[in-house]
Design a binder for these strands. Structure first.
Lengths: 235, 235
DNA sequence: CAACCTGAATTAACACTGTTTACTTTGTCA
DNA sequence: TGACAAAGTAAACAGTGTTAATTCAGGTTG
């Protein structure tokens, strides 16, 4: 891979970008069922088989697209917290709000990201490598934020002895393997907070709170405050 | 609708049942992409257009099938708690474990239920009526359990004044409209607990905890205990 | 009993889909 | 300039949801 890409390689990268843009427009404007090889190629003034020069199948094309969603949401969170004042505690709140805002603003992308794993193949099929890597970068962003929080703000996390042994064993294995400077009690608090944040955002995006809420913003803020309290933070 | 259905109506009901059974087997064993009209009809020894005597489209067939998933999971929860001893507090824990067990045992059905809303149509499309009704029956089961818990066990729910006004207004509207004998503070606690339970189960089923957990059972039990603590219950 | 009608099921067809093969054009590089 | 690889096309195949016209059996009514 040369440092200065050829003219052809630039064209190729531009074409992949256009494929993503067109496929995403179809996904957002006309639904997941409308993003087909022929529809994409039609919008680009090409024929469908030409797309096989860029992806070995439609599934790979979609997984490549979904990986960009992980990166885009992650970058939205990162640029938001970089532009925001305040310490690690305030930054954590801002990051959660930024993730929620992106998800609410991009429901089709959010749904595609989280439904892509189990939708096609049965059984616990291993996720596509590129998608998995993007997901790991995503998780890493929030984990770094939490490590910052733990190191600089003195949040209150439960003592390690409070974590049940079978759970502590798994979390300890993860911490040592990835060199994360966090005690198991703090790691448990991180996963618990993530469960709560994801549950809230997913229910909002999927519309499963409509049965009792017309505008879930207030509920989200209350839940976010509860998460902060759970970590011993003040709003 | 006569009390004693005709012979033809019995045959029709049996056929619909067989359609559901075959479609579900395809969904579970070969993935969501394999449940097609032609595959269903092939397995039943029929032709594809015959299915249009029972459903106006494949989407309607699938929504009818998904509605049975809501009812099945709900009934699994209800029969489990009916056979269990203990007061409302213990029953709530058992109900949460029953829902989790069903979801883990039926990942394809769980995914279909929760991904069906936003997968096909863009925008906030209104859910299909039958599916919506099944979802409401599902929600009602857990809400009744919670009302029982609040009325008989004296759980600790936050005072109504602690609920932010914009959130309290929406919850109060729901409570009065559906004649639920609960204060807003308790209703807020219910929604919060549901957010946490759903988030945990969804992350487990979708495999999004694999990055740090090999067996999420212990994490679920810890989260369930935290939810109980949040409601002022003892395990 | 005969006539009628309704519902179930079929065949044929249409407009799509993902994918493969063979072929042509076009840009790059020695 | 000539050779090579990449990009793109046309044609075809198997499979999809859906519709229209048709046939056949069951139940209802004269």
């Amino acid at each position: 891979m040369p440092a200065t890409p050829n003219r052809r390689e630039r064209l190729r990268a531009a074409t992949i970008g256009e494929i993503h843009a067109v496929a995403r427009r179809l996904l957002v404007q006309e639904g997941a069922g409308a993003v087909t090889l022929r529809a994409i190629s039609r919008d680009m003034g090409m024929t469908a088989p030409a797309l096989y020069r860029y992806y070995p199948s439609l599934d790979d094309l979609l997984h490549g697209l979904y990986a960009t969603f992980y990166d885009e949401s992650r970058q939205h969170v990162e640029t938001t917290i970089e532009a925001a004042p305040g310490g690690p505690g305030a930054r954590m709140f801002i990051a959660c709000r930024a993730l929620r805002a992106w998800s609410i603003d991009h429901p089709a992308e959010f749904t595609a990201m989280f439904a892509s794993r189990a939708s096609v193949k049965p059984g616990g099929a291993a996720p596509e490598p590129g998608l998995h890597a993007a997901g790991m970068r995503f998780a890493d962003t929030f984990l770094r934020l939490f490590v910052d929080l733990w190191q600089h703000d003195g949040i209150v996390t439960p003592p390690d002895a409070d974590v049940p042994p079978p759970l502590a064993a798994q979390l300890t294995a993860f911490l040592t393997q990835h060199h994360v400077p966090l005690p198991v009690g703090a790691m448990h608090a991180f996963v618990s907070a993530w469960v709560r944040l994801f549950g809230m955002i997913a229910l909002e995006v999927f519309g499963y709170l409509h049965f009792c809420l017309t505008d879930s913003q207030a509920m989200f803020e209350a839940e976010l405050a509860a998460i902060g309290r759970q970590l011993g933070l003040e709003p």
